[in-house]
Write a protein that binds this DNA or RNA. Structure first.
Length: 200
DNA sequence: TGTCCGATTGGT
DNA sequence: CCAATCGGACAG
């Protein structure tokens, strides 16, 4: 199974985000290969998106990679202890990214259990900061290309549209009306989601 | 340089 | 519900 080409990411974020469901995120590090199937993502659509880190055109040392062309890693450190992982999308000149919120563990489950310090498979990668810890993703991945050796995506299960649901994004109460936007995409029958709310 | 706070998690 | 824990953002 081959790596997804960078051209996959260099399309509009609202196209790429749902297509990421079912794809396999892989890291290859000294401890071994770990991977998981993407089951939950959120789209952050750029400088006009009040929930985005680049809202209003805010371009800083932390956010600069979001302005690059799609196919790069945007990671950030938050709450003094957590790393969150995003995939930059779109053409150069846009500032879009997809926030990866949950995976279904696949390869290297013993490595992931050791990194996470838990045995329950449902607690390994069912949250944005859990999956980075499980896959060994830290701030050194900032700006890395997703067709590299350490981290990449590969083709996975084809997800039928009927299995995909949407909801507002999680944890963005500061974003005004944007907190209602249906930019969270997830595989509705997955038991590995970060939150078990079904809404409506 | 000082203060404020978070696209979370895990325990109470 | 709330503490943990600290780098980035921004005001001054």
């Amino acid at each position: 199974m081959s790596k997804l080409p960078l051209s996959f990411y260099q399309r509009p974020v609202l196209t790429v985000a749902p297509e990421l469901l079912g794809k396999i995120l892989v890291t290859s590090l000294p401890e071994g290969i770990t991977s998981g199937k993407i089951v939950e993502v959120e789209a952050y659509t750029g400088i006009k998106d009040p929930a985005s880190h680049v809202y209003g055109g805010k371009k800083t040392e932390r956010t600069r990679v979001i302005f690059e062309e799609g196919g790069k890693v945007y990671v950030y450190f938050v709450y003094g202890m957590h790393v969150c992982f995003n995939i930059v999308t779109g053409e150069k000149g846009t500032a879009e990214c997809v926030f990866i919120r949950a995976l279904e563990p696949l390869e290297g489950i013993e490595i992931m259990k050791k990194r996470r310090g838990v045995n329950d498979i449902f607690k390994l990668t069912s949250g944005p900061a859990k999956l980075t810890q499980a896959l060994g993703i830290d701030m050194s991945f900032y700006g890395e290309s997703l067709d590299g050796e350490r981290i990449y995506l590969k083709e996975g299960e084809k997800i039928e549209p009927s299995r995909i649901d949407t909801s507002p994004r999680i944890g963005i109460d500061y974003a005004g009306e944007a907190k209602e936007w249906e930019y969270r995409f997830f595989i509705k029958d997955s038991p590995f989601l970060s939150v078990k709310l079904s809404r409506r």
